[in-house]
Amino acid sequence: MHIPDGYLSPTVVIATYAVALPLWVYGFKKLKSSLNEETLPLIGVLSAMSFIIMMLNIPIPGGTSGHAVGAVLIAILFNPWIAYISISIVLLIQAIIFGDGGISTFATNSLTMGFVGAFVGYYVFEALKKYKFAPYLAGWSGIVASSLLVAILLGIEPIFWTKNGMPLYFPFGLKTTIPALVGAHMLFFGVVEAIFTGLIYNYVKNKNLEFIK
């Protein structure tokens, strides 16, 4: 889901930065009020887990691969705003140091994998908290929602931005991107995200965590 540079039209790039920026500002305020010497190791380690889980590529039928993201785990163990900022920091490191993702698409990727994944997962979890399967379904829903937004942002490129009938940026439309991306996340990577989120949530959860919310 890491959209590389050059795949999105300048309009989408600017629009996603315009949306992401105020959310970063608000998220940083949230982070500022909860980041201290006591919470630092936990926020750091959860972000590091997200970085690592994104390196664990899983091959799927059709000759492609993908991975879980880990945003929902941070959102339900901690807070979705912190998850958005943490995933953004991970994505920035991936883009600059490892050439994974892009700079022009940094805002887009932060919104899709970070913001949307974290908040959808968080609200699914909050709604179903009393059920044992809540963290699993939250993980699945979060990453599937992320993949839907990625599919839409990529799929609208050839509708709006063409020259002489030739696509200027990402060339495949919604009819291709939605089944390919959302389908793969529903069937495969969403399941991995569900297991990752559910198992680790159950392994580390602790009632004393309320203080960090």
Partner: peptide
């Protein structure tokens, strides 16, 4: 596609 073709790859220190 032109936009993809004309994009310069970032010089990441540990590419891929």
């Amino acid at each position: 596609p032109k936009g993809i073709e004309s994009t310069k790859e970032l010089n990441s220190p540990i590419k891929d």
